[in-house]
Design a protein around this nucleic acid. Structure first.
Length: 209
DNA sequence: GTTCTAGAAC
DNA sequence: GTTCTAGAAC
């Protein structure tokens, strides 16, 4: 007997429809949150990542760690939606992202790039300091999404658009990258657990050369 | 994206 | 016994 869960009320229009996960649109909400917004103009909004994978706070004796997201005002769901017409916008996002990094700490190493297969809807450029010293960075997926080729540099996306007029990424290939063994992004040493890796990476220096 | 937690790994 | 990972979430 097909025992389907009884729907509570008449509000559900169709039982076969997917519920469309509410959290996917979290970035649109964050763009309106004054606690998170650090910059805004007619083209873009820059916010602090709500769960920064590098620290956003300044600690005494410890260099500051940062994780920002640059998002276009225009509704662009993901990298696949991009065309040649977006090149100027992406260059602008990258320039403003760099400005944000410099104003946060111009002595600290940053990378600017996109997740090949992001969880959240709405195009967002990660601007993240390379210390990765954060309580919110907990899982292998977190780690590999920022330290393997899953993290695609902003320049590379812009190059692809200029050459092909589109961004082509093989989703299945990138999903595999998230399962790779843990490896220090600086000295390439292997680690068997996240806590061991997180202790290790504190020993490296993340100042710009 | 996060939270929660069963059970694997140690 | 504790630490840690990985999969479900209606």
């Amino acid at each position: 007997m097909a025992t389907k869960r009884k729907s509570d009320d008449s509000t559900a229009s169709s039982a076969s429809k997917k519920p469309a996960p509410f959290w996917k649109n979290g970035l649109k909400t964050s763009m309106e949150d004054p606690e998170l917004v650090v910059y805004k103009d007619d083209k873009i909004t820059v916010i602090k990542d709500k769960y920064p994978k590098a620290r956003n706070c300044v600690y005494i004796y410890i260099q500051a760690k940062y994780h920002f997201l640059v998002m276009p005002k225009e509704n662009i769901p993901n990298l696949k939606s991009l065309t040649g017409s977006h090149i100027d916008l992406l260059k602008y996002m990258q320039r403003k992202g760099k400005e944000q990094a410099d104003s946060a700490d111009e002595t600290l190493q940053f990378r600017l790039g996109y997740h090949a297969v992001p969880s959240m809807s709405h195009l967002h450029l990660h601007v993240i300091s390379q210390d990765f010293d954060s309580l919110s960075l907990k899982t292998k997926k977190h780690w590999n999404s920022f330290t393997t080729d899953y993290f695609v540099d902003s320049e590379e996306i812009i190059d692809q658009l200029e050459e092909d007029g589109k961004v082509s990424l093989n989703t299945a290939t990138f999903q595999e990258l998230l399962k790779k063994n843990l490896k220090c992004h600086v000295c390439k040493k292997d680690f068997s657990t996240m806590p061991a890796l997180k202790t290790h990476i504190k020993q490296h220096n993340y100042r710009r050369k």
